[in-house]
């Protein structure tokens, strides 16, 4: 039997795939502490204070100290909690966040050691659906964490998180449909190539979709102003109230990894992925750096919004999602569909 491999992209030797997985894992996880430090420093600046500046030069070792502190803490578990699910929930969160990272394209196919290598983990013909599939599983990380804690604050946070995730997933998914229709493909690398062919990033023709997707991204990562699941003023800490030490560190890292992934997906879908503006065509080794720079810029935007906007009330969150965001995304999809057919 002749083996036919996936027709998107091409088949690579196993050692290259393992190497790629390691490199993407390492690079992705290096961005997380940088975003963490940037958030604390920038929040300090936004609030007219210094932010962390004691550990290492300019406080650069602060993430290391944070993680070290968390890992040396006692692993405490409430008596009412359910051990199996209590341990499993943060693991689901971190696995889904890491798995999504595999779909992010950092560049097109290049030659490394004489082998053609795609600068991405996987290039699937379902592309963006892969991301949504893992987003759907990530829901269980939050809900099980809150439910298994056996605490009312955790439970309320988990229920809020669940309602919020499914509400905004619909709008986010519809916002992507516009991009998919314009590119004519679901594959993330081909979406970037479609933007290169048009010479126009999809943020311009799909501006409404961009806004809706970014807003839904804020909600999906439980970030301010949509951080209702962990609203500390009313819910202590939401779904991760009862977690300390390693479990909390895992949730924390999953949240920041999600920010990185959502930034990367937004950059890929709407901001031209590894492309540079004004038709500048750099050598291929610049491509991953461009993607990382765009991830950095979007992560900065996430932090900026957190420092600027207050938290929404819960009913406002829901009515905003269903009555404003969803109709906007639907109209955007319809208009795009008509325009794609007419042109």
């Amino acid at each position: 039997m002749t083996t036919v491999y996936a027709e998107v992209g091409f088949y690579e030797p196993v050692w290259i795939q393992i190497l790629k997985a390691l490199v993407i894992f390492a690079v992705g996880l290096q961005i997380v502490p940088i975003v963490l430090l940037a958030e604390r420093k920038l929040l300090g600046r936004f609030q007219n204070r210094y932010g962390p500046n004691r550990v290492g030069p300019f406080g650069a070792m602060q993430p290391l100290a944070d993680i070290g502190k968390l890992l040396w803490k006692e692993e405490f578990r409430p008596r009412t909690s359910i051990q199996f699910l209590f341990v499993l929930a943060p693991i689901i969160s971190i696995i889904t966040a890491t798995a999504t990272l595999a779909a992010v394209p950092f560049g097109n196919v290049v030659d490394i050691f004489g082998e053609p290598v795609g600068l991405y983990g996987v290039d699937l013909n379902i592309g963006i659906l892969y991301v949504f599939a893992f987003g759907a599983i990530a829901f269980y990380g939050i809900v099980l964490g809150g439910w298994a804690s056996g605490s009312k604050y955790s439970f309320l946070g988990a229920m809020r998180g669940a309602a919020q995730l499914i509400s905004y997933e619909v709008a986010g998914g519809l916002a992507v449909v516009g991009v998919v229709m314009m590119a004519g493909t679901l594959s993330l690398t081909e979406i970037v190539e479609a933007q290169a062919a048009d010479g126009l990033w999809f943020v311009i023709p799909q501006f409404v979709g961009f806004l809706v997707f970014l807003t839904a991204g804020f909600a999906e990562t439980n970030r301010a102003p949509f951080d209702l699941p962990e609203a500390d003023a009313e819910l202590v800490g939401g779904y991760n109230t009862e977690y300390g030490g390693g479990g909390f560190a895992t949730y924390f890292m999953a949240e920041y990894l999600n920010i990185v992934v959502i930034s990367a997906i937004t950059a890929t879908l709407f901001l031209g992925g590894w492309l540079l503006p004004f038709g500048i065509d750099p050598p291929t080794w610049v491509d991953p750096l461009v993607v990382i720079a765009k991830i950095g810029a979007l992560s900065f935007f996430f932090i900026w919004i957190r420092a600027t906007l207050p938290r929404l009330r819960y009913d406002q969150l829901m009515s905003f999602g269903w009555k404003i965001l969803l109709p906007l995304a639907t109209i955007n999809t319809l208009v795009t569909a008509i325009l794609v057919v007419v042109w």
Binding site: L124, F132, A136, I137, A162, A163
Partner: peptide, 25 residues
């Protein structure tokens, strides 16, 4: 692949979320 993704998004994602909601509430 498409059916697998749809299975996860629609069934494991959307439909089962409602089940979890109902049972939890």
């Amino acid at each position: 692949e498409f059916v697998a993704a749809a299975q996860v998004v629609v069934y494991a994602g959307a439909v089962m979320v409602l089940y979890v909601f109902v049972v939890a509430y």
